[in-house]
Design a protein around this nucleic acid. Structure first.
Length: 563
RNA sequence: UGCUCCGUAGUGUAAUUGGCAACACGUCUGACUCUGGAUCAGGAAAGUUCAGGUUCGAGCCCUGACGGAGCAACCA
């Protein structure tokens, strides 16, 4: 029971919720909350985007508003439809919907063009004929003000004429740009007559060859927000310095009380991985990983293939919160989130990764009995299943030691152990190969100790998982570890993240043995291999050739003791 | 040496807006257990970057240092 005080205590709100509620209480924008998620279709979504998605869609949901999906497709040289589809799939997978509000910045190219023309007519924009380097040099530095372009005071007529001809394809790429006339002496570099249109002759994935000029991000984003009636434009911290420019354009556009507002929050960084699209793309291109959906990638498709659930990702995002502090979040919290989720939903099964043959010498040859096992002790509704048991079984190599240390609760010569759901067995002898490796272990069982019988309650130090040798299915199991050995591989000034790649991030195990109930397992099905961890069926898996990915291991205090 | 933003246990966040610094993960004990998982009970760990100031009272307000990040793409 909660104390009354606790119930009354308001949930603490993060700074964005506070800002939204303040706007609402002041009656801004007619009490509407309307957000947008604005991905550029130039790569796959990663868990950092999930943080933004949860906020954009989450705030809309919380305040009875809407959230648009808007592709920020203003640069045809980098963007592609391939990415549009994957982005939509990933957002839906996370459990969010934009209903019929799927928009593109390119939907507004006409309006944006008109707005640019208006700015020219108001004397607030001009065509500059200078080269990129000259413009850049003239811009000054962070400590020195910039200089005026010689074309800054062209006549409105000449600007209009040039701008139209730019779009007719009359000029080469890079030969002319349209600039906003703001302030070359501004301490904010983004206000020093920013370029708002450039000539690009690459066909656009939606508008084809209709346009020869394309708006820059700063000239498209805020305006798109405005056109869509967005009230809260939530983005990451690095856009903080863009805000004055965002507001400047909105000022020129406004014709009522409505105005969109940009608020910035901290992006998600995860330990032992990289998050920039560029770096992820490099890993894919250089075949460091098998693709965007390699289970070691922090992409949503990678995490999905690894066995992460949408719930676990949303829970994780919820746990880390939104602030303005640039933080680096511990992967162990992500792992906590998936363990917590899978613990309650994943059925338990027996799978042996590195098999060791065990022969129960006093168990009748040729006999098979079915043993009943609980599918999930955390969820009775998942029921029970039958697992075959027989004279020859496999156990985990790690569960046997010829010469064990003190606290080893598993099988060893002369020691007793419980075979989960079956019998208590005692190790009598073993067989080794020429290399001195144990190849077979001989045990005797006590028929009176079958699970459920009174004598089964005898205290035994350890309980092992097992599979009946005659009934097993062969499987391949892929064990994943962190992609980088360094907590913050991108955080070294003079070192490339690639120098910290973990050479052991993938271990492929073949000849693994799993229980027969797994025969019909389909890709993305999730299981707990008892005592080992959570595993997910890979897309490569086929009937007769099962492939599992290890999502995350179980917490292993025994392994920790041995460190 | 310009502008903007940020400094709270190891990490991520809270602190009802000026009232004895809390929660989660991680970590350490112990209990329980037919998963060395889960669960349960308990512990250690920051005096809020520093120095001044305002105040009866400051993590919160002010000033100044120090530290970190972002910004000078015809990228987003």
């Amino acid at each position: 029971m909660k104390e009354p005080e606790e119930i009354l205590k308001p949930e603490s709100q993060h700074f964005i919720e506070q800002a939204i509620e303040k706007d609402l209480s002041e009656g801004k924008n007619g009490g509407r909350v309307h957000t947008r998620f604005p991905p550029e279709p130039n790569g796959y979504l990663h868990i950092g985007h999930a943080k933004a998605i949860c906020l954009d869609f989450g705030m809309a949901e919380k305040y009875n508003g809407k959230c648009n999906l808007r592709f920020d497709d203003t640069n045809p040289t980098k963007e592609d439809v391939e990415y549009v589809d994957s982005i939509k799939e990933d957002i839906q997978w996370l459990g969010f919907t934009w209903e019929d509000r799927e928009f593109y910045a390119s939907d507004y190219f006409g309006k944006l063009w008109d707005f640019a023309v208006t700015l020219i007519k108001r004397g607030l924009a001009y065509v500059d004929d200078q080269s990129a380097v000259t413009i850049s040099e003239q811009k000054g530095t962070t400590t020195q003000t910039g200089n005026y372009s010689p074309h800054r005071d062209r006549s409105i007529e000449e600007n209009l004429d040039l701008f139209f001809r730019m779009n007719e394809g009359e000029f080469e790429e890079g030969s002319r740009v349209l600039r906003a006339k703001i302030n070359m002496a501004s301490p904010n570099m983004h206000m020093r007559d920013p370029i708002i249109y450039r000539i690009l002759k690459t066909p656009h994935h939606r508008t084809g060859t209709k346009w020869k000029v394309y708006p820059m991000y700063d000239f498209a984003h805020g305006q798109s927000d405005y056109f869509e009636g967005i009230t809260h434009s939530l983005c990451t911290l690095e856009f903080e310095v863009h805000r004055p420019l965002y507001d400047w354009f909105v000022d020129q556009l406004m014709d009522s009380d409505y105005r969109p507002r940009q608020i910035e929050f901290n992006r998600l960084n995860l330990t032992y991985t990289v998050m920039s699209k560029r770096k992820l793309l490099e890993l894919v291109k250089d075949a460091v990983v098998s693709g965007w959906d390699d289970p070691r990638m922090p992409t949503l498709c990678g995490l999905r293939r690894r066995g992460y659930t949408p719930e676990s990702i949303r829970r994780f995002v919820d746990l880390i919160g939104y602030t303005k502090v640039e933080a680096i979040n511990d992967v162990s919290l992500l792992e906590y989130a998936i363990r917590e989720n899978l613990n309650e939903r994943a059925p338990r099964v027996f799978g042996v990764l590195k098999p060791l043959r065990v022969i129960i010498t006093n168990y009748p040859e040729g006999k098979t009995e079915n043993v009943e096992l609980i599918n999930n002790p955390e969820d009775e509704s998942q029921g029970k299943r039958q697992v075959p048991f027989s004279r020859e079984i496999y156990i985990e190599q790690e569960d046997f030691m010829e010469d064990p240390p003190n606290k080893f609760f598993r099988l060893a010569p002369g020691q007793e152990v419980r075979l989960k759901g079956a019998y208590i067995v005692r190790c009598q002898s073993l067989k080794k190969n020429d290399a001195g490796e144990v190849t077979e272990v001989y045990c005797t069982y006590d028929p009176e100790t079958h699970s459920g019988l009174p004598l089964a309650d005898r205290k035994v130090k350890g309980t092992l998982h097992w599979v009946s040798a005659e009934h097993v299915l062969d499987a391949e199991v892929r064990l994943y570890d962190r992609l980088f050995n360094d907590e913050d591989p991108s955080g070294h000034k003079d070192k490339d993240a690639r120098e910290f790649l973990n050479p052991d991030s993938l271990a492929i195990l073949t000849g693994c043995k799993v229980e027969p109930s797994l025969a019909s397992a389909k890709p993305l099905d999730k299981f707990q291999f008892q005592r080992l961890g959570y595993f997910c069926v890979d897309y490569d898996s086929k009937a007769g050739k099962l492939v599992f990915n290890r999502t995350v291991s179980l917490k292993d205090t025994w392994a920790k003791l041995n460190k």
